[in-house]
Design a protein around this nucleic acid. Structure first.
Length: 563
RNA sequence: CGGGGUGUAGCUCAGCCUGGUAGAGCACCUGGUUUGGGGCCAGGAGGCCGCCGGUUCAAAUCCGGCCACCCCGACCA
């Protein structure tokens, strides 16, 4: 490919809006272009890489025994009503109508469509297990698109669905997919780790996310170096031990705490650690007020809270909602509280003599004891694991790291098959719902991660298997006839050997060409210049190393093949 | 949806406070020169100053509303 003909132009200035390396480099290299928030065009170079990523994914999915299909993006609304997800996913669904007013949604994922397909064709356990997948554009009206290709509203996803006759079968399919995913990410040059995750609106039980650990990631995960425990912060457990479990309960006592409205102030005012306090946090859960009681040194994990409440939607109370609920912000507690659901973290009942709000301004209560002074409707683990908390398995301190979620695998079970009647007859002639799993990879997000994982200050460094072209051929001073002739010859010779280079045949200064070569990131660079030509040589340099060497022109093909 | 920020040439930005002729660098076109890290010279083309309204003799500039985009949070591949 001649660079002079290539559609897409490098820019000298990085784009102002880009804050992450992948966003900046892909835009600056002229590989992607934004159309609207979370909606991008892919130009030739990026599209080539995406196709290579897809090819790797196809190979691994096929090797795992899956078959590729292609499902529609236009989904009749009814199919979403059948699963109930027109409600649980309504915030991200794009809606549209046909001429007759029939309602459709743009597919954000395909459990409903695939389950429908299954129920039309599968009758017998003999057809199981079954794995179907597709690589397709998904549409989600994300509340906040972010960081170039990291979070898009229109994106390419590989989604695979497994159907098994029993739970052991699902476990096997799941394990098979986990291994396939490890292969995909390894081949793409992105180190990914599997962590325990939350199933969210997908339904189902076990689920893992594959994380690429990086500071620019939007997820937080906790890791134990001692025993290997790894979990998304949304679901991470940690070992909780009460500090004063053996203390006898002391009499409740009200104290004046003028001007004290926060836990740190309270602890300082009374000269106690924050772990001796019981904090009240206010939420609205599906429109109902909720008071959450948690030890003062911990934070609420909203994913856990949402699950404990079995709520569709929860959010932190606004000031207005606090007023309406009648909570005394700064001095609130569950003691004597009416008219709200009370949720207590499961550590609270084990503690003795905590300090909590008195539900009147400037007063707090000493020696508050669960069971004696108050009770909660729900007691559950709703605490957020943090850096340094003890591992739930071995007690060693957990490490907090940020990551980008590249893929997720779910054991869905019968969530969809029961709702939608996806059944089969087992060996005994019994009708049973299929046991399902689903497995997604964000293809364009993976592209972004590839760049995040493979770049330096000068540009992208494509891994071999993904590079748009294996070689970048730079002709310096190409307006000199002998340079042009030699470069053209080498270009043709490489092509004849099945190596298509990206050939910089532009009449540009050396600096421009070399900078662009670094930015565009082909794994090998061949440079022809008056200097190399004098020796009848061409310079060969890997993008990933500063080491360049001269090789005789006639050995160029061999050198490239062996490099 | 809450909080913060930005909208001026293809890109990066100045001009706005203090109203009066729309600018720079890069990119683009012509010609010349240079040739190993975005070189130099000359000439040229390119703008509903985000949109709508208001104030004013006069608005990129002041005021109001709206929209878009970016960042931080609640959601997800």
């Amino acid at each position: 490919m001649r660079l002079s003909q290539l559609f897409g132009k490098t820019q000298r200035q990085p784009p102002a809006e880009a804050e992450t390396a992948s966003h900046r480099l892909l835009v600056q290299a002229g590989m992607v272009a934004q159309l609207a928030a979370g909606i991008y065009s892919y130009l030739p170079l990026a599209w080539k890489v995406l196709r290579k990523i897809e090819e790797i994914v196809r190979q691994e999915m096929d090797a795992a025994g899956a078959q590729e299909v292609h499902l529609p993006s236009l989904h009749p609304l009814e199919i979403w009503q059948a699963s109930g997800r027109h409600q649980t996913m309504k915030d991200v669904l794009f809606h549209l109508q046909d001429k007759r007013g029939r309602e459709f949604v743009l597919g954000p994922t395909h459990e409903e469509v695939i389950t429908d397909l299954f129920r039309r064709y599968v009758r017998s356990y003999r057809d199981l297990p079954l794995m179907l997948y597709q690589i397709q554009t998904k549409y989600r009206d994300e509340p906040r698109p972010r960081a170039g290709l990291i979070r898009l509203r229109e994106f390419i996803m590989k989604d695979l669905y497994s159907f098994d006759a029993d739970w052991e079968g699902l476990d096997r399919s799941y394990t098979t997919m986990v291994h396939a995913y490890e292969n995909v990410f390894r081949r793409c040059g992105v180190p990914a780790v599997a962590v325990l995750a939350d199933a969210g609106a997908m339904g189902g039980k076990d689920t893992h996310e594959f994380m690429f650990l990086t500071e620019v990631g939007e997820d937080s995960c906790l890791f134990c170096q001692a025993c290997g425990y790894a979990a998304n912060a949304e679901v991470a457990l940690f070992r909780k031990t009460p500090t004063h479990a053996d203390e006898p309960p002391l009499p409740l006592e009200e104290v004046a705490t003028p001007g004290v409205t926060t836990i740190p102030q309270l602890a300082q005012f009374l000269g106690i650690p924050t772990s001796r306090t019981c904090k009240a946090v206010f939420y609205m859960a599906d429109g109902r007020p909720v008071l959450v009681a948690i030890r003062g040194d911990m934070e609420v994990n909203e994913t856990k809270l949402k699950r404990a409440l079995r709520a569709l939607d929860i959010h932190y109370m606004s000031e207005e909602e606090v007023l309406r609920a009648g909570f005394v912000a700064g001095s609130a507690s569950a003691v004597g509280l009416q008219g709200a659901t009370i949720v207590a973290d499961d550590l609270i009942p084990q503690e003795r003599n905590l300090v909590a709000g008195a539900n009147r301004p400037d007063y707090h209560l000493l020696n508050v004891n669960y069971g004696r002074d108050w009770e909660a409707q729900i007691v559950a683990d709703i605490a957020l694991a943090a850096h340094g908390h003890p591992c739930p398995q071995c007690g060693e301190p957990l490490q907090l790291k940020r990551g980008i979620e590249l893929g997720q695998v779910f054991k869905l079970g019968t969530f969809y098959s029961e709702k939608m009647g996806a059944t089969f007859l087992d060996r005994q002639g019994q009708m049973r719902p299929a046991i399902m799993g689903c497995y997604g990879i964000g293809i364009d997000r993976l592209l972004a991660a590839v760049v995040e994982a493979n770049h330096d200050q000068d540009g992208i460094i494509w891994p071999r298997e993904l590079a748009p072209y294996p070689v970048h051929l730079v002709a310096i001073a190409i307006d000199k006839e002998e340079i042009r002739q030699t470069s053209e010859e080498l270009y043709c010779r490489l092509m004849a050997h099945g190596i298509e280079p990206l050939y910089d045949d532009r009449e540009e200064s050396p600096g421009v060409k070399l900078k662009d070569a670094d930015l565009l990131g082909m794994p090998l660079r061949l440079t022809i210049s008056p200097r190399t030509l004098q020796q009848g040589a061409v310079e060969l340099k890997p993008r990933s190393s500063p080491q360049a060497r001269h090789v005789p022109l006639e050995e160029a093909i061999k050198a490239v093949t062996e490099a």
